[in-house]
């Protein structure tokens, strides 16, 4: 395996990292809360992809398990955040 072999995964990971940064900018700017939740959700999806790519680059298959877990936690976290936003609106 040469170094040129690894670089393609690295380029993909960097591209997706750039995308994650853009999503983060939207999460900071955000005008509404829902924009921020959407941006954080997209950021989580990108994290899952980056984890899988890093696992391949570093040759650690354990990263894939973390990616599975993160995909599940990301979805649950989004739903929980939405419930929280909703309930806070009712209590005010």
């Amino acid at each position: 395996m040469t170094s040129a072999d690894v670089s393609f995964e690295l380029i993909t990971a960097l591209l997706i990292l750039g995308g994650a940064l853009l999503a983060l900018i939207r999460a900071v700017k955000g005008p509404t809360t829902y924009d921020r939740v959407l941006a954080v959700n997209v950021f989580g999806t990108k994290t899952v992809i980056i984890l899988a790519l890093l696992g391949y680059i570093g040759n650690r298959s354990g990263y894939l398990d973390i990616a599975v877990l993160y995909a599940l936690v990301n979805f649950l976290g989004t739903v929980a955040l939405l419930r929280f936003v909703e309930s806070r609106r009712f209590f005010q």
Binding site: F8, G19, N41
Partner: peptide, 29 residues
């Protein structure tokens, strides 16, 4: 495939950043 996927993921985020309102931001996401 990987580079193409990275490109689509990147432009999805770009769409989230550039679209004018919340509902249109849902489409790239």
């Amino acid at each position: 495939l990987m580079i193409l996927g990275g490109f689509f993921a990147f432009s999805g985020s770009l769409g989230i950043l550039r679209m004018p309102d919340f509902y249109s931001r849902l489409h790239p996401a």
